[in-house]
Amino acid sequence: MDRISSTRPRPLSPNIQIYRPQLTSVLSIANRITGVALSVCAIGLVGWLVAAARGPRAYSWFQGVIGAWPVQILLLIATFAFFLHLCGGIRHLVWDSVRGFELRQIYSSGWAVVAASVLLTLATWFLSLTIGRVV
């Protein structure tokens, strides 16, 4: 089927490039982008577990990599991606129960997802840095 359609390029109508970005569409694609980004983080999670299992030297090497400031910035972005995907996912589960489909509800739940993700990211890093300093 793919071979037949590729013999002649099919006409394509312009879609995403002519639309003004809206909260609804931005959050929709953000759920995908964060999902892909978190998949990369899942590989890191396995690497982290393997390092911990190998012993103190491998673990401290891994902690050293995580502690480097470019990686810390990536981790901050990853934390926000995690909370956006988590909150966005809960929003999807609410939709699956056939609730919250009014336009006003869709916008208010969308802004709630953005606000909760920002707050949870800041709270996570604040707590992590203060606990890390105290102990």
Binding site: A52, P56, Y59, S60, L127, S128, L129, I131, G132, V135
Partner: peptide, 13 residues
């Protein structure tokens, strides 16, 4: 992860 921010290897393991 937050709770173990300052833990050393022994505490973490």
């Amino acid at each position: 992860l937050i709770a173990h921010s300052g833990s050393d290897y022994q505490a973490f393991i």
